[in-house]
Design a protein around this nucleic acid. Structure first.
Lengths: 221, 221
DNA sequence: CGATTGTATTTTGGATCCAGTATTACTTGT
DNA sequence: ACAAGTAATACTGGATCCAAAATACAATCG
């Protein structure tokens, strides 16, 4: 027997999850200071696991740290967002180039399943679930590249730029666009057509960026 | 007046520096376990700042963490190295494309200065100084792109793939090659010739990778 | 003699406590 | 009334202590 040992869930991992979630949903607003012992009390743990979770987020660039001043949630201005998104696109492009050469039918099935989850969550209006399924969709493709470090970086970039997602998905028209583009991506993968796939990913990105520009413009008024 | 406050050096930052250095020079060999209180005693601090520094390195992917088992220095097999290097190249390419449009004469001067430092350190046989100057050379160019997050990722990737550098630079022939290629890069920047610059960076990378293949092959015997 | 279970030791994870620094509020002087 | 200096407060950084989990070792049973 060779049973995979379940890695035990430590408190810091729990805290890390909670922090990620709070940042993603905007409960911890970008730019706001993070008070360690308030958080500790709120989560019912001591300050130590809080500090360690914050250190990981610091390494990932999701929070800003200034010695003796504490942590704040990193802000994402439009131009920062565009920068992160641009990096994501470059890396994802590299990943899918490799992925399309090695992807199996089961992977494609998973892709299709993840897409179905996106649609279902969208119709149910469950924003968090939709963001999660969307992530799974993209990373199914990325995983097929078999480049673990590239995957890691994309994962961090994803988290870092997913901050405003919840607002973004709430618009009906965006959901439809995403659904349509995803299906196109799946088709291109099925056909093993690299250039078409790259083109579709590019369009997917441009659609997203355009939507964001509108969104930010609306915010400013 | 808007003076930037000097951030005080905390113990964890000191520990972090020491750990980075130990990993870079190979004192902490890839794959070896990191014993927390041994380190704490050695550096004359408590275990707390050690743990927090390790958390940052975990976020950067330089050490592997398993709950309740501790940390190990991440191993870099040849294929891992190639993967990291490939990512670096892609991102550096994006950076220099932007950089060449915005770079100033002062930046170019700094580039030339950094290159001079590389040569000087090389002749003096100071490997660590040479690695540092080489890093400065590349990041002078990257900084000119004005993409702070991209810069951050490149910085992490650089550290992660710099592990074997000390061995690498010790060979005379490599030093000469690096010097020659750097000068070519500077010339291309001066001429604002993007395509030539990209081409030269690609060659620079290929030369490095080829050298590494030889090096690893020698190691295996 | 080998394997398995129980025990001791080592090492990490978390809590509490203390010290040093930054921020805020208040007081005092002009 | 406003500014500057000072005192009070709040929060972070680090050390020590304790608990829990993993590993190493030994003893016992088949």
């Amino acid at each position: 027997m060779d049973i995979e040992a379940r890695p035990p869930q430590t408190t810091q991992q729990y805290v890390l999850e909670q922090l990620r979630r709070a940042i993603l949903t905007g409960q911890l607003a970008p730019g706001s200071a993070i008070r360690q012992d308030a958080l500790a009390e709120q989560l019912g743990v001591s300050r130590v696991p809080i500090r360690e979770a914050l250190k990981i987020l610091e390494g990932e660039g999701q929070v800003i740290y200034r010695p003796r001043r504490g942590y704040m949630v990193a802000e994402l201005a439009l131009e920062d967002f565009l920068e992160v998104y641009r990096i994501r696109q470059i890396l994802e492009e590299e990943a899918v180039r490799r992925a399309i050469e090695r992807i199996t039918d089961e992977d494609i099935q998973r892709l299709q399943d993840a897409h179905a989850d996106v649609v279902a969550a969208g119709q149910a209006g469950e924003i968090i679930a939709m963001a999660a399924a969307n992530r799974r969709f993209h990373f199914t493709l990325i995983d097929a590249a078999g480049m673990p470090r590239l995957r890691r970086f994309l994962s961090i970039l994803w988290d870092a730029s997913d901050v405003y997602r919840s607002l973004y998905y709430s618009e009906e028209s965006n959901r439809e666009r995403v659904e349509h583009e995803h299906q196109g991506i799946i088709d291109a993968v099925r056909a093993r057509d690299t250039e078409d796939l790259i083109r579709r990913l590019g369009e997917h990105r441009e659609g997203t960026v355009a939507t964001f520009r509108e969104f930010m413009a609306k915010q400013d008024t």
